[in-house]
Write a protein that binds this DNA or RNA. Structure first.
Length: 798
DNA sequence: GCCGCCAGTATTTTT
DNA sequence: TACTGGCGGC
């Protein structure tokens, strides 16, 4: 493996080759950590003859896991198939599905998301008659979640309350919340980790088997691990101690979710024999961008000393612009992107990053106006949209009836005349008898006081019965979904609304259906190849599980030519040639909470976030701010972000108002320091002033992609339709050279004869370009007409 | 049981 | 601004 020397720099190589014992890799932004991790796995298998089966690689996101999987597969040409590359949560789910019965749960548990947690907590507040003002569900969920992250049980919590009324009430809520989850055979996200650790502790033989299996463990983004995750990893690694963690303390940005930066800072305390390797050469950004980011992060006190460097050259200065209003800021960004494209830039070179999702609106608006195709990542997760959750609730009920929450969710959706009071009575009866909501419906007459609704309840019960019966006749998720839509009249109902919002919902359901279709394809493919599908083997259950553990971020499409908009949090781990950091204002970034708060740690976390944002940029970084902006419906006057002032001299181009001094407690916009602190200094909003859109003259040549029709409706419709996927006129863009037209086809065209492993020979009828892949319609000689995705179907032209 | 109106509230969120 | 939750009228 001599070529390793050519492919890796010395510290990277050392990290790859140091396979035995604990290893901490401090990997600065853009220093090639994924490269190190994947090469390390390949090295273990190829050079050290470690069985793939004995390796566990853990990431935080499905996207990262997918990427690592792919790269490992490529490096090992398929020999790495046995490696577990997985997120913390999916690794835990896999373990729990096998063994959770040992700690008193059913192995077909359902997973509750944030929305479900909210529903449960609301119910808890009602039941315990807590004052909803003093005990907000958000706060309670947060308290329970932190407790779980710290592995504090409800009993411990109560014991620790020490007679404090408020804490005791929270303990009550925690206990009741747990009771409801248990009754519904459900686990929340935190439970997935917690119960796995509990399982390991209570069943040493189970732990031992996994310890034996996972002799080599790799953990990515270690700085973002919380207490339970730390314990989980440490339990697994305790026997062989071949634990390799990779992270960057400067990129720890999830403290608010329980991430404990000490896990990485104290790694050497936990493992005194740990080898520490620093990766400080950055392969991503220009020297200027790197220096700018370094000078900002240098203001944090609690961090490991390191200094990223690059040999990429200085590159362009960081651009800094300040505007009178947030409108003008957004206009500038849209206009600047147009200008760059006119100079030959491509759409996916650009990313607009911001602190809060709310900031995306304006930018989105201006991009639409400028005719710039964009994709918003994040915001409301696809799978948490009402209509999607409704559909999934039906599927869940068909799969198992234990989840009262799902039943209650859709028992009156679409409207069936079953109201809150009836639902409350049925649930009350279920609670009293210790049964489940759905089982009570077997004999609704037994529930006192619901005579009028009895017929309706029976109708619902029968409908579910029928759906379940249908399910036994088909294994296809898409088929089941079709039945649900048909029987419930869900889409019919939406159609009658005749609103754009309803149309958006219908489109979302259709998208869910296409996801189901591709899931079916995957299953059938594996089936026909005689391969095992990862999972329980029950297709519906696997589908629900996958859907429970994915986010929109996983859908970020690299193949598509669009400007991406997202929060800085979502951008972690990504890189773009040109990054815009918008809203660089104290009160926005750092957020008002951190500014107003007394905890300097909060500002430090924001600063790390700023560091993450800046280091996403490869060649160009633009930071912008607005003097005024609407925030929560009110006009706000925010000072320039302190982080902008922290950028070292000589790296940034653009007028920066003179540094302000000291605390600014009665800040009102201008008066303390006089207007000059905000003067434009001869650039900035001038070209885009007065709220006119004249600034887009330069974009005129792209008018072809600007027509309203190409966006499929108003911007509000687009938001409602909710997928972060604005429709745009691809052809018009190709005409305007905004998009390269060299997309590769699947290697066959309509009319061609093809062969499929399972269905035999057939004729291609249609090829549609889908979200990720080509959707091919084939008329098979024996199996009839089938739609499938090219990547899965692996059709061969004959 | 349903619908519409008013008041209160407002980060980030890989899973 | 924009969403949610609670409450009162039909």
């Amino acid at each position: 493996m001599e070529r390793l020397e050519q492919l890796l720099n010395p510290p990277q190589l050392e990290a790859v080759k140091h396979t035995e014992g604990p290893l901490l890799i401090l990997a600065g932004a853009g220093s090639g950590k994924t490269r190190v991790l994947t090469f390390r796995i390949a090295y273990l298998i190829r050079e050290k003859n470690v069985a793939p089966f004995n390796i566990l690689a853990i990431t935080f996101t499905n996207k990262a896991a997918g990427e690592m999987r792919e790269r490992v597969d490529r490096l090992l040409e398929g020999r790495g198939a046995g490696v577990w590359v997985s997120t913390f949560h999916s690794a835990c789910v896999r373990i729990l599905r096998r063994y959770i019965d040992l700690i008193g749960y059913d192995t077909n548990f359902t997973i509750y998301d944030a929305d479900d947690q909210k529903t449960v907590m609301k119910q808890v507040i009602k039941k315990l008659e807590l004052d909803p003002k003093a005990f907000r569900e958000k706060m309670l969920i947060g308290a329970v979640s932190s407790a779980k992250n710290e592995m504090i049980s409800a009993e411990d919590f109560r014991a620790d309350a020490g007679g404090d009324y408020r804490l005791e009430k929270i303990a009550d809520a925690y206990a009741e919340y747990e009771r409801v989850l248990k009754h519904n055979n459900a686990l929340d996200f935190d439970d997935l980790l917690l119960k796995t650790v509990e399982l390991f502790r209570k069943c040493p033989e189970v732990l031992a088997s996994y310890q034996e299996r996972f002799r080599y463990i790799l953990v990515d983004e270690y700085q973002d691990t919380n207490r339970v995750q730390f314990v989980f990893v440490n339990l697994l690694a305790r026997k062989y101690r071949n634990l390799c963690v990779v992270g960057d303390d400067d990129q720890s940005i999830y403290k608010f979710r329980g991430a404990d930066i000490r896990n990485i800072l104290d790694f050497e305390k936990h493992f005194p024999d740990a080898k520490v390797i620093k990766l400080e050469q950055n392969y991503r950004s220009t020297g200027t961008i790197l220096d700018a980011a370094n000078s900002v992060i240098a203001n944090n006190r609690d961090r490991k000393a390191k200094r990223l460097w690059t040999d990429k050259g200085r590159g362009a200065q960081v651009t800094w612009r300040i505007f009178d209003t947030a409108y003008e800021e957004a206009e500038y960004i849209a206009g600047d992107i147009l200008k760059e494209i006119a100079r030959g830039g491509s759409l996916n070179d650009f990313a607009v990053l911001y602190r809060t999702n709310a900031q995306s609106r304006l930018i989105e608006e201006k991009l639409i106006f400028a005719g710039v195709p964009y994709q918003i990542v994040g915001g409301v997760n696809f799978y948490s949209r009402k209509e999607i959750k409704d559909m999934l609730a039906y599927l869940k009920i068909i799969e198992s009836g234990d989840d009262d929450l799902s039943v209650r969710r859709i028992i009156n959706v679409p409207k069936r005349g079953i109201g809150d009071s009836t639902i409350a009575k049925v649930q009350g009866f279920a609670d009293m008898t210790g049964g489940h909501f759905l089982s009570v419906l077997e004999d609704p007459a037994a529930v006192p006081g619901i005579e009028r609704a009895r017929k309706k309840l029976e109708g619902f019960r029968d409908m579910i019965r029928d759906l379940r019966k249908d399910r036994t006749e088909t294994t296809g998720i898409a088929d089941i979904l079709d039945r649900v839509i048909e029987v419930t009249g869900y889409i019919e109902d939406l159609k009658m609304e005749e609103t754009e919002e309803a149309d958006g919902r219908i489109a979302n359901i259709e998208e869910l259906r296409s996801k189901a279709v591709s899931f079916d394809e995957l299953y059938e493919m594996a089936d026909s190849l005689g391969e095992e599908v990862e999972g329980t083997g029950d297709r519906l259950r696997d589908f629900l599980e996958e859907v429970a553990l994915v986010s929109d971020l996983d859908d970020l499409r690299e193949d598509n030519s669009r400007v991406v908009l997202m929060t800085i949090h979502s951008a972690k781990g990504l890189e773009f040639p040109h990054v815009y950091l918008a809203g660089m204002e104290d009160g926005i970034f750092p957020g008002y909470r951190a500014v107003a708060g007394t905890d300097p740690g909060e500002i430090e976390e924001e600063r790390r976030l700023c560091y993450v944002g800046m280091t996403r940029a490869k060649n160009r970084l633009t930071m912008t701010a607005a003097k005024t902006r609407m925030q929560n419906g009110q006009m706000q006057f925010n000072p320039v972000s302190r982080f902008v002032y922290e950028v070292a001299d000589g790296l940034m181009e653009g007028y920066l108002p003179r540094q302000r001094y000291g605390a600014d407690d009665d800040y009102d916009g201008y008066d303390d320091y006089g207007r000059d602190r905000y003067s434009d200094g001869g650039f900035g909003s001038r070209g885009f002033s007065g709220g006119s859109y004249g600034g887009y003259a330069s974009g005129g040549s792209y008018g072809g992609s600007r027509s309203a029709g190409s966006y499929g409706g108003s911007s509000s419709a687009q938001r409602k339709s909710a997928r972060p996927k604005p429709a745009y006129d691809l052809d018009a863009m190709k005409g305007a050279n905004l998009v390269s037209a060299d997309d590769e086809g699947p290697g066959y065209a309509p009319g061609d004869r093809v062969v499929h492993k399972k269905f035999g020979e057939g004729t291609v009828k249609e090829i549609k370009e889908g979200a990720r892949d080509f959707e091919v319609t084939v008329d098979f000689d024996s199996a009839g007409v089938r739609k499938m995705f090219a990547a899965f179907a692996k059709l061969e032209k004959i």
